[in-house]
Design a protein around this nucleic acid. Structure first.
Length: 406
DNA sequence: TCTGGGGTCCTAGGACCC
DNA sequence: TCTGGGGTCCTAGGACCC
């Protein structure tokens, strides 16, 4: 198998710089519109100063006093993402939309049409640059793990190929935390076992890994060897979502349950509307609470019949809230439905409304893992002070209607 | 004017059953 | 006057990802 991984460079920031020439070459940070927002993407100019994703505005400005904040516009990113995916589809039918700015492409056997892998990559980069004005990094390797590693090795505008015969040499001294799926906690635990590089991981006794890390442990050793067999899931063949949720960080911490309920109503409606649009119903409703000190927990309640009815979701969410003795003011609330009825996905609402249908598909497409662009949804109810009974639609899709998904 | 939002998968521990 | 012991279902939390 030959896997190509494409990663758009500083995606949101680059889109903004392309749209507004005044921002080009400048340190910018794309943020949300809500009060307690963070940096979603920093331009390369801003990264030089140490501005990173996840920083709050205050912190970012301290790192880079000349930093320009730009409130993100998700329609632009979705539109651009769909265009990039369509380019990739010209090179292979097997394109996995991993996130809004990343995709895997199975280019096994495409050499007769497009030449060797590096030629395919070169042509893809050229097409993306022509069509969107943006650069991306591409990695090519025998599997998704290594392709992702390769695309990470040169940014921006990189092209790295990892060949089968170079794998062990490349991985030998690579820190385990560089691998996709090995985060800070696993890195720490492995370090406790004196395992710091992929080479050490590859040589470590499988039985110990299995004992210490469970099912993950079995895969770890293989990952250290560069072995990884998870398949590319082409667009349209993804499984239905297993949960649908929305959460929001409140403009300020709130202890009053009646005020919190108004947020729950909006969140419930957002969850309900989106579930209905996708034809999904869940048998469980969970409430997430985060206190001012960031202690976060969830409580859930089950249902006899799966639902996507706003009133039912809201009713359960408030029941749960009623059963909690709040120890301090709340920073974040969230509502999620899960245990989604498998196999009996209904036809979506809005059937017959072709545009709407296409839109939902388009969003689904790039939204496989949902992700960053829900900032807009949160922003929608940020601006109007939550009044009782005011239900706003989860999303108004004006402007994306012309997106053509092949 | 400190720290967003949306997902997936795995596991520990308790309830309950035979 | 201690102790079974599987199996399943459920809840909550944690690690990881973009």
């Amino acid at each position: 198998m030959i896997v190509l991984h494409m990663d758009m460079n500083a995606f949101f920031a680059s889109v903004e710089q392309r749209c507004n020439p005044a921002l080009r070459g400048k340190p910018i940070a794309v943020i949300g519109s809500s009060k307690r927002t963070v940096v979603t993407t920093a331009s390369y100019e801003a990264r030089k100063f140490g501005v990173k994703t996840g920083m709050n505005k205050w912190e970012a400005k301290k790192k880079c006093p000349s930093l320009i904040f730009v409130i993100g516009d998700n329609r632009k990113y979705i539109d651009t993402s769909v265009r990039v995916l369509n380019i990739l589809k010209d090179f292979s039918p097997k394109v996995e939309a991993y996130s809004i700015d990343e995709a895997f492409v199975d280019i096994t056997g495409t050499d007769l049409l497009f030449g060797p892998p590096e030629e395919v990559a070169r042509r893809i980069k050229e097409r993306i640059r022509e069509d969107t004005g943006l650069t991306c990094s591409i990695g090519i390797a025998p599997n998704k793990l290594l392709a992702k590693l390769a695309s990470d090795m040169k940014k921006p505008d990189g092209l790295v190929i990892i060949r089968e015969e170079d794998v062990s040499k490349l991985l030998n001294d690579l820190p385990v935390g560089e691998l996709w799926g090995i985060g800070p906690r696993l890195t720490e635990h492995l370090s406790g076992l004196n395992v710091r590089t992929c080479g050490q991981l590859a040589a470590f006794p499988a039985s110990v890994l299995r004992e210490r890390f469970g099912i993950i442990g079995e895969r770890l050793k293989l990952m250290g060897q560069g072995i990884y067999d998870s398949p590319i899931v082409p667009i349209g063949e993804e499984e239905a979502a297993k949960s649908v949720g929305h959460s929001t960080t409140l403009p300020k911490d709130i202890a009053d349950k009646e005020v919190l309920k108004r947020y729950l109503l909006k969140l419930s409606e957002m969850v309900g509307a989106r579930s209905r649009a996708h034809g999904l119903k869940g048998r469980k409703v969970s409430l997430t609470i985060r206190y001012g000190d960031f202690f976060t927990f969830t409580r859930q309640k089950g249902l006899e019949q799966p639902t996507n009815d706003t009133r039912v979701i809201y009713s359960l969410a408030t029941d749960i809230l009623g059963s909690i003795r709040l120890r301090s003011a709340v920073r974040l609330v969230g509502v999620t439905i899960s245990d989604i009825a498998g196999g009996c996905r209904q036809l979506p609402l809005f059937e017959g409304e072709r545009k709407r249908e296409r839109l939902v598909n388009a969003v689904d497409l790039v939204n496989r893992h949902f992700g960053d662009f829900t900032l807009t949804w949160a922003a929608l109810f940020e601006d109007d002070d939550p009044g009782p009974g005011v239900i706003s639609p989860a999303w108004r899709p004006e402007g994306v209607k012309r997106v053509n998904v092949r």
